[in-house]
């Protein structure tokens, strides 16, 4: 039986998610043994065009060319997996959606000469805004264990176990001191999907929400708590909810200031 063909494709993103695929180091050889890596620009120069059995797609869609490529890829791919927040929810690139062009111009000196800007859409959206996505691997970047879990699921045709409950679950099970309750710091853990092993709170930093909303995120209640307990202003709250997943239905109200 021929090995399933895997593609790792990049749209608008920082390449950190692809890096994470490479960081599966200890299992990488097993992975290469189990699948035929047909397209992975960061790892090989022998890239072939589809069809693919599985495609991991990093990044959000910000140019007409990317949109064209994504649609073609969808047609040539059995299982299309959105890899990381940019692909799942827009993430950092999508902050542009909230910013008027004049504002961006203040940051970039010669704004109109930026090549990507000239040919790009004014707005950036996740993959699911344009094509059917079979699985979303969230996180900025997703944890390599989750990437492996998704690939195993794809190869065996079973549903992978991805944590949809909040970061607080992993955080508590590690017996961390709660930064929000005990120290009054603005932690996004209660509304953020787990999967990172509560990486930030376990190192004394508040969760920034980089896995996007958990399965039943109560954003309005947390916004109220962060304002009351941690003294966050309306601006601060908008920033918190916009940063990684402001376009998602669970966060959009808080991200647009409707608090």
């Amino acid at each position: 039986m021929a090995k399933p063909k895997l593609a790792v494709v990049k749209m608008t993103g920082c390449a950190g998610c692809q890096m994470e695929v490479l960081r599966i180091e200890d299992k990488l050889l097993d992975l290469v043994g189990a699948v035929d890596v047909a397209y992975f620009y960061m790892a090989t120069s022998a890239n072939r065009h589809g069809p693919y059995d599985v495609a991991l797609v990093e990044g959000s869609v910000s140019t007409p060319r990317e949109l064209r490529e994504l649609k073609e890829l969808r047609e040539r791919t059995k299982l299309l997996i959105a890899l990381g927040d940019c692909a799942c929810s827009g993430c950092l690139p999508s902050i542009v959606n909230w910013v008027p062009p004049q504002e961006s111009a203040k940051v970039y000196e010669r704004f109109l000469e930026i090549h990507s800007k000239k040919e790009s859409f004014q707005r950036v959206y996740p993959l699911s805004a344009h094509v059917r996505v079979d699985l979303e691997l969230r996180g900025c970047p997703p944890h390599r264990d989750a990437i492996l879990e998704a690939l195993k699921g794809a190869l065996l045709g079973i549903k992978p176990f991805l944590r949809e409950h909040p970061v607080c679950v992993e955080c508590k099970l590690k017996e961390n001191v709660c930064l929000l309750v005990c120290e009054g710091r603005p932690c996004m853990g209660p509304v953020t999907a787990a999967g990172c092993g509560a990486a930030c709170p376990s190192n004394g930093r508040v969760c920034e929400g980089c896995y996007g909303p958990m399965s039943d995120a109560n954003a309005s209640s947390l916004a109220e708590i962060l304002a009351k307990r941690c003294g966050l202003s309306r601006e601060d709250l908008i920033g918190k909810f916009r940063k990684y997943a402001g376009l998602t239905p669970a966060f959009s109200k808080e991200a647009s200031g409707g608090i």
């Binding site: 176990f161 909040p166 607080c168 679950v169 508590k172 099970l173 709660c178 309750v181 853990g189 109560n218």
Partner: peptide, 22 residues
């Protein structure tokens, strides 16, 4: 409406006995 469904209460509780098998 207030509840965050964060699970902290259950995971803190000395008598909760529910588990998931995977």
């Amino acid at each position: 409406e207030k509840d965050l469904a964060c699970g902290i209460c259950v995971n803190s509780c000395p008598t909760c006995f529910c588990f998931d098998v995977r």
